[in-house]
Amino acid sequence: MLLLIDAGNTRVKWALPDEQAVPDTRLSAWLRMESLAHDALDTVLADWQTLPVSRVLISNVAGDVVQQAIEQRLAQAFPALSPVRFRSTACVAGMENHYRFPEKLGSDRFATAIGARALYPQQELLIATCGTATTVDIVSSAGHFEGGMILPGLKLMAESLAKQTAQLPQVAESIQVSQPFADNTDQAIVSGCIHAQTGAILQALQAREQQTGQPVRCLISGGAAPYLLPHLQGKAEAIPSLVLTGLRVVAQSHPELFQQ
């Protein structure tokens, strides 16, 4: 059994893929999937100890402390296993990494690109991942990671103005695209943050379509995706867990990673 771990800046997701199923956007491709905060990592040990795991693949962008915490729990649950750390390189699973320094690309962004490409092969893709930061990345129809942009995430933008961030979801849902100009400060801040995020995504989408002369499929993922999706004018579709999907593709494409 394969255990996949996606350690992001605020949460850790882990999943068990159904290795007999074709990767798709539905939960049917997964036997189990969980998400927890960094400070709740102790709770995974009881779950992991019951699983017949034979391989582990980790993407971690949360730093050494989180990596060490994950590895400690893995060592307790599966003492005979050596987990594999996924890192960005020049080419993995058929995806060419055109970052100037390929190894500097965040492993989550590269895994996301690989996952999106597996779901929508031979298509021009724009992938917006909306979490602590928002990244907007391009994958060409030829399977090349072309690069992208990084901006503060929706919550981080709102927090920088110190206004009602605890109520961000409720306020965000009340904003209408047709009425972007709010008559109170809290909604004005959230409206500005939402339209800054969606404006960046839509501008990138338009720029890529003009650059290539081809239609571009826009995918959105991440914790803030539900709040941004209604404001993207029907030009994006939500796809969950793209990092885990990409890790699954990597594991299937490169069994040599797990050779001791």
Rank of each mutant, 00 (worst) to 15 (best):
L2E: 07
L2N: 09
L2P: 08
L4A: 01
T10N: 12
R11P: 12
V12S: 00
K13C: 07
L16R: 12
P17M: 05
P17V: 09
D18H: 03
E19Q: 13
V22H: 12
D24S: 13
W30Q: 02
L31R: 14
R32K: 13
R32W: 14
S35T: 15
S35F: 07
D39L: 11
D39E: 15
L41T: 05
A46R: 11
W48N: 03
T50P: 06
P52C: 09
L57A: 01
L57C: 07
L57F: 00
S59T: 13
S59P: 07
S59V: 08
V61C: 01
G63E: 04
Q68V: 11
Q72W: 07
A75T: 07
A77C: 02
A80I: 03
L81I: 11
S82D: 08
F86G: 11
F86V: 05
V92K: 06
G94R: 02
M95S: 04
E96T: 06
E96M: 13
H98L: 15
Y99S: 10
Y99R: 00
K104P: 03
L105E: 06
L105W: 13
R109V: 08
A113P: 04
I114C: 10
G115I: 10
L119E: 01
Y120V: 02
Y120R: 08
P121H: 05
P121N: 05
Q122V: 10
Q122K: 14
E124I: 09
I127L: 03
T132L: 04
V136Q: 00
I138K: 02
S141L: 11
A142P: 05
A142T: 13
G147L: 09
I150F: 07
P152K: 03
G153W: 08
L156Q: 14
M157D: 04
E159N: 08
E159M: 14
E159L: 12
S160L: 00
L161M: 14
A166Y: 12
Q167D: 15
P169Y: 12
P169L: 11
A172M: 10
E173Q: 15
I175Y: 06
I175R: 03
P180R: 07
P180F: 07
N184R: 12
A188P: 09
A188I: 00
C193F: 03
A196C: 14
Q197L: 03
Q197P: 04
Q197I: 07
Q197S: 08
A200L: 10
I201C: 01
Q203P: 02
R208C: 14
E209T: 12
T212Y: 04
G213L: 01
P215N: 07
V216D: 00
G222I: 05
A225S: 15
P226T: 05
Y227V: 01
L228A: 02
L229N: 02
P230T: 01
H231D: 04
L232A: 09
G234P: 08
G234E: 01
K235C: 10
E237G: 09
E237V: 15
A238L: 15
I239L: 09
I239S: 02
S241A: 15
V243E: 00
V243A: 11
V250L: 06
S253C: 13
L257A: 00
F258A: 01
